Simulated assay, not measured.
Amino acid sequence: MSGHGERRRSQAERDAITVEIGYALFSAAFAAAVLFGAVAGPALLFELPSVAEKLSLRAGLVLAPVVFAVRVVSVLVRFRGGGQPSQPGRTSPDS
């Protein structure tokens, strides 16, 4: 599996990947929960007309997983593409 020019990752690289995955999942769950609360919250807290309540709950149930997935992908793609500065102690030019 590690034949085509792949190199073994150092422990620091593996740790950085683990932290980034954890951050992506946590921030995505938080964003999805906030969105669900904003969209479906009024239907849960207040007495709304039946149609508005159903629409609000369904919109929250549809949008929350979409936001979760988009957030996870965007964080992980940014991590993969960003990399580290070329020299220790220096910031990359686009930061």
Rank of each mutant, 00 (worst) to 15 (best):
L55I: 05
E53G: 06
R14H: 14
L63N: 00
A28W: 02
S92E: 07
G3D: 11
A40L: 02
E13K: 11
P93T: 07
A32N: 02
G22H: 08
V67N: 01
T91Y: 06
V62K: 00
R7C: 13
R80M: 11
R7E: 15
A28V: 06
T18I: 02
R7W: 14
L57V: 07
R7V: 15
G83V: 11
L25Q: 06
F68L: 15
D94L: 10
G41Q: 03
S27N: 09
V75T: 03
V39I: 14
S92L: 08
P65L: 01
L55P: 01
V72Q: 05
G83T: 05
L44C: 11
S56A: 06
A33G: 09
V66F: 12
S86M: 10
R9V: 10
F68M: 05
A31P: 06
E20L: 14
L57R: 04
V19D: 09
L57K: 03
E47S: 14
T18M: 07
D15H: 10
A24K: 00
Y23G: 02
V66K: 04
V66M: 13
A64I: 01
L44S: 09
G41I: 08
F46D: 07
D94Y: 12
P85Y: 10
V77E: 05
E20A: 15
V34P: 01
A31H: 06
V75S: 04
R58P: 00
R90Q: 15
F68A: 04
A38R: 02
L48Y: 02
S50V: 11
S50D: 13
L63C: 00
D15M: 11
V62G: 00
L61K: 00
G83Q: 03
L55D: 05
A43T: 02
S74G: 00
